[in-house]
């Protein structure tokens, strides 16, 4: 926008993200389609890359809706500047199912089987935190699941079904990747 102070050095910069195994080169700057320095990763994923499965709810880092996995860790994409993500590997909700077959990840299937959502707005974020958890700890206890998800706001109260679903997905045989 017009009030932005231009920095010629920045305008020429390009950053590289790997999102759901796909490489993206994004120009930094304030031209249309470029990433502005103040753009959050949540904004870039949704508005620039069209990956609208990542949700923004509070936009203040207090509700977990925008959670994605970056370099193996769950993070809040609304509190992350895209410009600082150069070289990052990011997984969003769109990257969870098998890209070739469309087969749901066992966690996704367990959420479907357990009706582990009501309105579903918080579900993508919850699934990403859950994925980050089971990647570290393939057989978490209920307590570990609850604490891994402790930053997720679910106002419908699907907490019980979610914990059941994660337990189901992690106690049956199957690949959690």
């Amino acid at each position: 926008m017009n009030t932005r102070q231009n920095d010629p050095e920045q305008e020429r910069r390009t950053i590289h993200l790997k999102v759901n195994d796909k490489d993206y080169a994004l120009a930094i700057g304030d031209t249309v389609g470029a990433v502005a320095p103040s753009d959050t990763l949540a904004h870039t994923l949704r508005e620039t890359l069209g990956l609208t499965g990542t949700k923004i709810s509070c936009d203040q880092g207090s509700c977990g809706a925008c959670t994605v996995i970056m370099n193996g860790k769950s993070i809040l994409s609304c509190m992350t500047l895209t410009i600082e993500c150069d070289g990052a590997r990011i997984i969003t909700i769109e990257g969870l199912a098998d890209p070739a077959t469309g087969q749901l990840h066992p966690l996704q299937q367990a959420f479907v089987d357990n009706s582990a959502f009501q309105c579903g707005f918080c579900t993508p974020g919850i699934l990403m935190s859950t994925k980050a958890l089971v990647d570290q700890n393939p057989h978490p206890t209920r307590d570990a699941i609850q604490h891994a998800l402790s930053g997720h706001f679910c106002r419908c109260i699907s907490h019980y079904e979610v914990v059941d679903a994660v337990c189901q997905a992690t106690t049956t045989e199957g690949d959690h990747d």
Binding site: G61, G64, T67, K73, S74, I75, L76, M79, T80, S129, A132, H147, A148, S150, G151, H152
Partner: peptide
């Protein structure tokens, strides 16, 4: 502190 996602960064 806060939640796992915040402790991660």
């Amino acid at each position: 502190v806060a939640m796992p996602q915040i402790r991660n960064v």
